[in-house]
Design a protein around this nucleic acid. Structure first.
Length: 214
DNA sequence: CTCACGATTGGA
DNA sequence: CCAATCGTGAGC
């Protein structure tokens, strides 16, 4: 079995990242493949925080739960654009959610990043959250809060040294997937009122950083 | 132009 | 179980 990540990476390590070509496929294909990959958050001072993606959901055209289901609007604009951009929106007037825009230009689709296993807890995280470090980014809203992701990052290109980008699976993680040492679970999405039956949520089994339910 | 509601979360 | 909190967009 091959690595599965040679395509779409602009260069070999250490500066490789998941580029627009790699992301130019259906969200339901990308979502499970993003598990084990790394989300990097880079601040203007150069500081970077990394988190392993442990839970994702796919949103596609003709999917009633997709923000772009009805029509193109100001908010969902970026979902209609080319792959490799971020789609960040405000939910319940309180939290932000981060998506990765996927598929061909003109095909509105995205993968929601629902949970991360952070490499370290950022200093601005309050004492209360620190008690359970691997729960700090367990959930799409918490994830954005932990990495200071808001709508100012909507539509940014996910390329190295930008505020956000994605890095491929570590070799060890891929091996563990191939041997079955690590299992991926597929189930229905969370918190929806439409498209509830579609099994488009994926997460790493037995991972403490995965958001509740399922 | 209005207003009901949401891909959530944490506290009662 | 329920409130917080506000941008969005469907419908009038």
């Amino acid at each position: 079995m091959g690595k599965g990540y040679s395509e779409g990476m602009s260069h070999s390590s250490p500066f490789s990242y998941l580029d627009a070509a790699w992301l130019r496929r259906p969200a339901t294909v990308i979502a499970p493949e993003l598990l084990g990959c790394t989300l990097v958050r880079r601040f203007s001072d150069g500081t970077c925080y990394r988190g392993k993606i442990v839970e994702t959901e796919a949103y596609e055209p003709n999917d009633p739960a997709c923000h772009a289901y009805r029509r193109r609007t100001l908010r969902n604009e970026v979902m209609f654009g080319p792959s490799g951009a971020s789609y960040v929106y405000l939910i319940y007037g309180v939290y932000h959610c981060l998506n990765v825009v996927t598929d061909q230009d003109g095909v509105p689709s995205a993968v929601l990043i629902r949970a991360l296993d952070l490499d370290c807890v950022p200093p601005w995280i309050d004492e209360k959250q620190r008690v359970k470090p691997h729960r700090v980014a367990a959930g799409p809203g918490k994830l954005c809060r932990s990495l200071k992701i808001d709508r100012s990052l909507n539509g940014v290109s996910l390329t190295v040294n930008n505020p956000l980008w994605l890095e491929p699976r570590a070799e060890r993680f891929q091996t563990d997937i191939d041997t079955g040492a690590i299992a991926i679970v597929q189930t229905t999405r969370i918190g929806l009122t439409q498209g509830v039956e579609l099994p488009w949520r994926w997460y790493i089994a037995d991972c403490p950083a995965v958001s509740k339910k399922g």
